[in-house]
């Protein structure tokens, strides 16, 4: 046996150790980092200056707590978990009736269990088998979950923009809606909207997905272009290729097929493509979209070629899907999520 290889994996291979590496390496796993509570430490032996400041802050904190104790009820997570089937877990504990779901906790369903997460003022989320969901933040006007893997169905009653779900490759921002979100272990996902709208965002790449439409996401390229579920399979497959593989051999053909097969209602897809294709292709998308929905007065080819919002927004308004200001109003810099893997 080579002791060097046991010490240093870059040394000449020892077949016996390598065999064990092969067997046991299958168990290697890097779970997602936990959601940390949003707070500031009040003391630290690692930093004296910070400790002095913390002492002063602690005095203020005690006063503040006393004030709140008199004037406000204790704040607790409004989220509860209910078992719908099998034995879902929060952390390592089985869900019992009215299990509270606190920030930092994880809900896990196995292959035969389902659960419902609910908060009266926000809505409810049904979590399918083989899923893992974390509560990242919850406070007035801001509620945030993370779907690490699996499938959930969200029915949200909170005002638009207040409820978000992070995944490994996109953040779903509720704009008043019901939707299903699936996330595979490899970070690829699918959002399907049943009612209302969902914004799908990743590092500045945004998709606005209306009811009846779906949108894929990948850890490499982020959210794809939304497409209506009743579009032809050839259209949807070609769109997947355009979204996912800008340099693939079949992309040119797929790009042409998307432009040719787009129906009037697929204008929403072409509108998204305007900002995603190469500048050299933008002219063709402009023409195809103009053939379906003529650009309003003042929306010129030059402005669209520069992706000027003063041209893109009015053209969106002309699609008949509502006013762009609706989602621009809720659009804001999203807190940074996990990095793509």
């Amino acid at each position: 046996m080579s002791e060097d290889y046991l010490w240093d994996p870059s040394a000449p291979v020892d077949p016996e150790v390598q065999r064990l590496e092969h067997l046991l390496g299958r168990l290697r796993s890097v779970p997602p980092a936990p959601s940390l509570p949003e707070r500031v430490r009040w003391s630290s032996r690692l930093g004296r200056p910070a400790a002095l400041l913390a002492a002063a802050a602690a005095v203020l904190l005690v006063v503040a707590i006393g004030w709140r104790g008199v004037h406000a009820p204790e704040r607790m997570s409004p989220w509860q978990v209910t078992s719908l089937e099998g034995r879902p877990r929060v952390g390592l504990a089985a869900v019992v009736p009215e299990t509270r779901f606190a920030v930092g906790q994880t809900l896990v369903t196995d292959s035969v269990s389902r659960a419902r997460i609910s908060a009266e003022a926000v809505g409810q989320i049904v979590v399918d088998p083989d899923s893992r969901v974390r509560l990242i933040a919850t406070r007035d006007g801001h509620h945030r979950l993370a779907l690490d893997r699996g499938t959930l169905h969200a029915f949200i009653v909170a005002p638009p923009g207040q409820f978000q779900i992070d995944t490994r490759s996109a953040t779903a921002v509720d704009l008043g809606c019901a939707y299903t979100l699936h996330m595979a272990d490899d970070g690829n996902g699918l959002l399907s909207v049943e009612a209302g709208w969902v914004g799908f965002e990743w590092h500045g790449r945004e998709s606005f997905v209306p009811a009846g439409a779906s949108c894929r996401t990948s850890p490499i390229s982020g959210p794809g272009s939304p497409r209506y579920d009743d579009a032809g399979n050839d259209f949807k497959e070609a769109l997947d290729e355009v979204d996912a593989a800008p340099a693939s051999p079949g992309r040119e053909r797929a790009f042409r097929l998307v432009l040719q097969r787009a129906r009037r209602r697929d204008a929403v897809t072409l509108w998204h493509l305007l900002s995603r294709v190469q500048p050299s292709e933008r002219d063709e998308v402009f023409k195809a979209l103009a053939a379906l929905v003529p650009p309003p007065a003042g929306v010129t080819h030059d402005l669209v070629a520069r992706l000027d919002r003063t041209a893109l927004d009015p053209w969106w308004d002309a699609l008949g899907l509502g006013d762009a200001s609706f989602w621009r109003r809720w659009e804001r810099p999203l807190p940074s999520g996990p990095a793509p893997r």
């Binding site: 796993s29 779970p31 936990p34 940390l36 877990r89 952390g91 390592l92 930092g104 896990v108």
Partner: peptide, 11 residues
Amino acid sequence: DVDDLVQDVFL
């Protein structure tokens, strides 16, 4: 259960 425990440990 290891993944969940890993998160617990870091929390």
